[in-house]
């Protein structure tokens, strides 16, 4: 009878480390791709360009500036809501609009071309009908 000869490939420590390293790298990349920090966020755009994204659950003041560094408006995140405290625009519609907190809600300052949007993937709301 012809018995197949089983050969064991000797793997040394270095090679095990390389494989484990690769696996860890793959796993972290997978997690990174698949899971980009959930939770309520505030997205601020100026002139259709992303200005910044902020945590809606962290009390903070956000100064929105133009390219020249001049302050366009001041906004405040507090108690999971954001509102505009002051703005250089004439109409002050953004200031009068008050607080927003629901996913998809926006505050728009048309003269300054600033759009503030709430993003919350957790509440599964795709749009707010005003």
């Amino acid at each position: 009878m012809n018995i197949p000869k089983i050969t064991f490939i000797k793997i040394n420590k270095k090679e095990i480390l390389i494989v484990i390293g690769l696996l860890i790298l793959a796993l972290t990349s997978y997690l990174f791709i698949n899971n980009q920090n959930p939770g309520a966020k505030v997205k601020i755009e100026v002139n259709q360009r992303l200005y910044g994204t902020y945590d809606l659950n962290k009390t903070q003041e956000i100064l929105v500036r133009d390219n020249g560094g001049n302050i366009l408006l001041r906004s405040l995140i507090i108690n999971g809501k954001i509102h505009v405290i002051s703005s250089t625009c004439k109409d002050k519609i953004c200031v009068h609009q008050g607080e927003i907190s629901l996913s998809g809600q926006t505050i728009v300052c048309l003269p300054n071309k600033v759009v503030i949007t709430i993003i919350n993937d957790a509440d599964k709301i795709d749009g707010v009908l005003k």
Binding site: I125, V128, L129
Partner: peptide, 8 residues
């Protein structure tokens, strides 16, 4: 198979 729309 639907979008969730919040009515203000």
């Amino acid at each position: 198979n639907y979008y969730n729309i919040a009515v203000q």
